[in-house]
Amino acid sequence: MDLGECPKIHDLALRADYELASKTKDYFYDIDATEHLEAFIADCDRRTTAAKQRLAETQEELSAEVTEKANAVHELAEQIGQKLARAEALGEEGMVEESVKLMGEIDELRKKKAVAEQEYRNSMPASSYQQQKLRVCEVCSAYLGIHDNDRRLADHFGGKLHLGFITIREKLAELKKTVDKRREERGASERERTGGRRHYTQPLSQQKQTRSRSHRSSSKERRRD
């Protein structure tokens, strides 16, 4: 999912100014951030649902038994990919012992995956087995194949796109815990600022009508003069 270049200004000096200003005034930007991330994740989830629907329409339909076996292979493959990406990251950070421990877990998962693949292969014709069976990543909506190797899966689960979506989802979950309270605080702040008066913004259509009437009135006065 490519959103293009961010329209916001990313400047460390401005960030420092904001952090300084936010010490004396609450701008409630966390509420705006929550709403923005909610819209972003909702769009991603819609893409995931649409991708699943496309796969259901285009891929050969399997029996419930074969589908269960295919899902078992997928799940083991994803676990291997996730752990392999994590092991590589730990190795780069110098945490060799933890990385080696994860590699041991990966070896065990590979054995289980080999058994699951054999069961899946034996449950269907050879011609059908060769076809790539896809599923959709629940985190970032990317396609994953049942025949993807460990390297391909590790690149996916350790990639910037997938990890970025994890970060966004975790941040959104964190913001949602306080957003209702923060909205109440913002409402109270606005009421205090306006002296308890409701701030009314005239709809755009009414604004145009008002300007039009004002313009006609001014034109009549000029003609009378």
Results as ranks from 00 to 15, higher is better:
residue 187 G to E: 14
residue 195 G to D: 04
residue 65 E to F: 07
residue 208 K to A: 12
residue 46 R to P: 01
residue 12 L to K: 15
residue 197 R to L: 12
residue 168 I to G: 00
residue 102 L to W: 03
residue 16 A to L: 12
residue 53 Q to N: 14
residue 160 K to W: 06
residue 16 A to K: 14
residue 1 M to H: 11
residue 156 H to Q: 01
residue 110 R to W: 04
residue 133 K to I: 05
residue 142 A to L: 04
residue 188 A to P: 06
residue 35 E to C: 03
residue 196 G to W: 05
residue 138 E to K: 09
residue 220 K to T: 11
residue 96 V to C: 05
residue 76 L to V: 01
residue 186 R to A: 12
residue 159 G to D: 08
residue 202 Q to V: 15
residue 30 D to I: 08
residue 133 K to D: 01
residue 188 A to C: 08
residue 99 S to W: 01
residue 172 L to K: 01
residue 171 K to T: 14
residue 54 R to Y: 02
residue 96 V to P: 00
residue 83 K to N: 13
residue 138 E to W: 04
residue 144 L to I: 14
residue 57 E to C: 05
residue 212 S to P: 00
residue 66 V to I: 08
residue 148 D to M: 09
residue 211 R to F: 13
residue 176 K to A: 01
residue 91 G to T: 03
residue 167 T to D: 15
residue 195 G to S: 04
residue 176 K to E: 10
residue 136 V to Y: 00
residue 184 E to K: 09
residue 207 Q to V: 08
residue 201 T to L: 12
residue 193 R to N: 11
residue 223 R to P: 06
residue 146 I to R: 11
residue 35 E to N: 06
residue 131 Q to Y: 12
residue 210 T to L: 14
residue 160 K to E: 14
residue 19 E to K: 09
residue 85 A to M: 02
residue 103 M to W: 08
residue 155 D to W: 08
residue 174 E to Q: 15
residue 167 T to W: 13
residue 157 F to H: 03
residue 13 A to C: 11
residue 63 S to V: 01
residue 78 E to S: 06
residue 31 I to W: 02
residue 61 E to L: 14
residue 47 R to A: 10
residue 158 G to N: 02
residue 120 Y to F: 13
residue 57 E to L: 15
residue 28 F to H: 02
residue 127 S to L: 13
residue 123 S to F: 07
residue 97 E to Y: 02
residue 5 E to H: 00
residue 89 A to F: 05
residue 64 A to N: 09
residue 117 E to H: 05
residue 7 P to T: 02
residue 27 Y to P: 08
residue 25 K to V: 13
residue 187 G to L: 10
residue 28 F to M: 02
residue 61 E to D: 11
residue 78 E to A: 06
residue 2 D to F: 06
residue 122 N to M: 11
residue 192 E to R: 11
residue 78 E to Q: 08
residue 217 S to A: 13
residue 144 L to W: 00
residue 47 R to T: 12
residue 34 T to S: 10
residue 139 V to W: 01
residue 138 E to C: 09
residue 160 K to A: 13
residue 53 Q to S: 15
residue 25 K to Q: 11
residue 160 K to G: 06
residue 55 L to G: 04
residue 181 K to S: 10
residue 166 I to F: 04
residue 157 F to T: 01
residue 41 I to V: 11
residue 150 D to S: 10
residue 27 Y to W: 11
residue 202 Q to A: 13
residue 74 H to F: 13
residue 106 I to Q: 00
residue 27 Y to R: 08
residue 49 T to K: 15
residue 102 L to G: 05
residue 196 G to H: 05
residue 145 G to D: 06
residue 17 D to V: 09
residue 35 E to R: 06
residue 114 A to L: 04
residue 20 L to K: 13
residue 223 R to D: 14
residue 93 E to C: 06
residue 187 G to M: 09
residue 87 A to K: 01
residue 49 T to I: 15
residue 83 K to M: 15
residue 22 S to I: 10
residue 80 I to W: 02
residue 143 Y to S: 07
residue 28 F to N: 02
residue 175 L to N: 04
residue 105 E to D: 14
residue 188 A to I: 08
residue 132 Q to P: 00
residue 55 L to R: 11
residue 140 C to I: 02
residue 33 A to C: 09
residue 124 M to V: 06
residue 121 R to Y: 11
residue 197 R to Q: 15
residue 19 E to W: 04
residue 161 L to Y: 07
residue 98 E to N: 03
residue 201 T to N: 14
residue 45 D to R: 12
residue 138 E to T: 12
residue 120 Y to N: 01
residue 130 Q to S: 07
residue 63 S to H: 05
residue 88 E to Y: 06
residue 94 G to K: 01
residue 70 A to L: 07
residue 99 S to E: 08
residue 13 A to M: 09
residue 193 R to V: 08
